[in-house]
Structures are given as structure tokens and as C-alpha cells.
């Protein structure tokens, strides 16, 4: 079965033992994203300090792929610079949209390489991307709020 390549142990572990789950304060922006085809949803908060992402907190419900992906995101993107994180997020997006033809770079992606198998299941790509798209949205909102504050 190909199931093992889709549901790698890392994914199942993050699903059963999510890291960083739960909404925390303080935060600069909160977003709520849904996957309208299946009803999966995530609420995600981002806390920035200068150009550092100091916390990503989240809550939501959905399948193992979407929930594990949020947990991995927390681990990969917290306590890094925004520019490093954006690079990671772009690499993850490219991997997910690569239909299985993109070779993942573990140095950039860390545990997120475990999702490589998801790319071969187009119907599940949106599950894996749900939290990452929410994160990008939240960071953009935080950054623009910060810029607004600095200008005012």
C-alpha cells in the first residue's frame, strides 16, 4: 500500500501529539481559514517581534494531514526570522504543488518533508496547505499592522 508514504510516522505522531496547539496571547494578527470542500478549519495567531516570528498559535479541526501540518508549521516557523520562514513556506508550497516531482530539501523544510507523499494526492494538498496559507495571511496582516503603527 502507498498509505505509508502518505501517512508517514512523523505525520501520525504530530496528529496524535500536536505541538504548540491552542490559542495564545499576545498576538498581532488572527486569521480563520476554512477548506470549503470538507469543512476543515483553523484559527491561527502570529506574534512578531521586529523581523522575528516569536509565536504561532492555532486551534482547529480537521483530518490528520491538516492538523499534523499545523503542528509541523508551529515547530518550523516559530523563533525564526520572517524572511527565513517565508522561504520555508514557499518551499513547502512548491513541494505540495509539485505533484510528486519536486525533491524536498530537508535543510529548509525540516519535518515538513514528511508531507512529500501528500503531493501525489491532489485532493489532499489543500489539507496540508490550510495552516500554511493561514500563516502567510496572518504574517502579512501583522506586518502591515506594524508598518501602519510605525508610520502613525
Amino acid at each position: 500500500m502507498d498509505l505509508e508514504s502518505l501517512y508517514q510516522e512523523i505525520i501520525l505522531d504530530h496528529y496524535k501529539n500536536p505541538r504548540g496547539r491552542g490559542l495564545r496571547e499576545p498576538f498581532d494578527a488572527q486569521v480563520h481559514h476554512v477548506n470549503p470542500t470538507c469543512g476543515d478549519e483553523i484559527t491561527l495567531r502570529v506574534r512578531l517581534d521586529g523581523d522575528q516570528v516569536v509565536d504561532v498559535s492555532y486551534d482547529g479541526q480537521g483530518c490528520s494531514i491538516s492538523q499534523a501540518s499545523a503542528s509541523v508549521l508551529f515547530e518550523q516557523l516559530t523563533d525564526q526570522s520572517i524572511s527565513t520562514d517565508l522561504e520555508t513556506a514557499d518551499a513547502f508550497l512548491a513541494l505540495m504543488q509539485g505533484r510528486g516531482h519536486v525533491e524536498p530539501d530537508e535543510d529548509v523544510l525540516g519535518d515538513a518533508v514528511a508531507f512529500a507523499g501528500v503531493a501525489k494526492y491532489p485532493a489532499r494538498v489543500k489539507c496540508a496547505l490550510l495552516s500554511w496559507m493561514a500563516w502567510k495571511d496572518a504574517v502579512a496582516q501583522s506586518a502591515s499592522a506594524q508598518a501602519h503603527e510605525e508610520n502613525s
Binding site: C38, S64, I65
Partner: peptide
């Protein structure tokens, strides 16, 4: 989750809606 149920079913040739 239903998505995960459906994925295993699909792997075995059983095509359902989730």
C-alpha cells in the same frame, strides 16, 4: 477524520464521499 477514512478506503478500491 472522514478524510482519513476515505483515504484508506480509496487505497482498497472502495470509493466513497467524505
Amino acid at each position: 477524520h472522514a478524510h482519513d477514512v476515505g483515504q484508506v478506503l480509496d487505497e482498497m478500491g472502495v470509493e466513497v464521499r467524505v
